[in-house]
């Protein structure tokens, strides 16, 4: 059986600057990383491989240089890496994106039974948290979001139990396989690639699935298939506050002043 890790290559947000004149992201020279939430999704797939012997496929949709990111997943122990890349996939919103990925999962399922698809709960560049659920509904799989623990997997009965981390509470859920999971950071600690695996990954193949392979209706994908479009990206203007007290020389007094101010503005409650 196969588990599929969905990973996205994102710009390293600590290094992203916004051009103050055009209001757009300065992408030049900004290195790309694996979306941090996705590293946990990938790790969970690899743990399932270690425990149940599943095979692991990593899928990523993005420009051709996404191959670098997929190669990193190979270094961590992924069995197949599939790059969904084509000009017609570009400019996609979450609907069009989940459409392409769901079709890719279905293609994989034709070759080998898919047990799970695991995504990070959201990406650090888009922050929508919609693609995972989108894949689940388009594939018709169980949808398990915000998972922080896989409690058990019953392969024979095609069932699994997970814990979901919600605001102030946990929820234990049983679901039928196949399932799409989106995971939170707390679920695991990602592993570190060994050098032999890194070298193996350098040689391994990242399979390209473009639209010649996928054969999707071009009006349902990419920019054309995206009902939402980004109009503008800009940084909120930050207003510098005033200095209330002298924290260097009168720290006690300054702290009291700070607390009083925060309470009076209802920012914290006493």
């Amino acid at each position: 059986m196969l588990v599929v890790a969905c990973v996205k290559q994102v710009p390293d947000t600590t290094q992203v600057k916004i051009d103050p004149e055009t209001g757009t992201l300065i992408r030049e020279g900004v290195p790309f990383i694996i979306n941090p939430f996705d590293t946990h999704a990938l790790e969970e797939c690899l743990r399932l491989k270690d425990e149940y012997g599943f095979r692991v496929a990593a899928i990523s949709m993005g420009p051709p240089n996404t191959e670098v990111t997929l190669r990193k997943t190979l270094a961590l122990g992924v069995d197949r890496a599939i790059l969904l890349s084509d000009r017609v996939f570009g400019g996609a919103d979450t609907l069009a994106t989940s459409m392409v990925i769901a079709e890719a999962v279905k293609r994989l399922a034709q070759e080998e039974e898919v047990a799970m698809v695991i995504c990070g709960k959201q990406t650090i560049d888009g922050d929508t948290a919609q693609v995972g659920p989108g894949i689940a509904s388009r594939c018709g799989y169980s949808q398990l979001t915000l998972v922080d623990q896989i409690k058990s997997v019953d392969v024979d009965a095609r069932k699994m139990v997970v814990r979901r981390k919600l605001e102030g509470r946990y929820e234990i859920v049983e679901a039928a396989l196949p399932a799409v999971l989106t995971v939170v950071r707390e679920i695991n600690r990602p592993r570190y690639p060994t050098v032999p695996m890194r070298l193996k990954a350098e040689e391994a193949e990242v399979v390209l699935w473009d639209n010649k392979v996928m054969q999707l209706d071009e009006t349902a994908i990419g920019l054309k298939g995206s009902p939402t479009q980004v109009r503008r990206i800009f940084s909120p203007e930050r207003v510098k506050g005033e200095i209330l007290g002298d924290g260097m020389n009168e720290p006690g007094e300054a702290a009291r002043l700070l607390v009083d101010t925060l309470v009076s503005k209802d920012i914290v409650s006493p």
Partner: peptide, 17 residues
Amino acid sequence: LVQVQAKFPEELLNLFE
């Protein structure tokens, strides 16, 4: 331990990455 087994004190993961 680091290069072949990827087994090291967990504090080092952040440093390495």
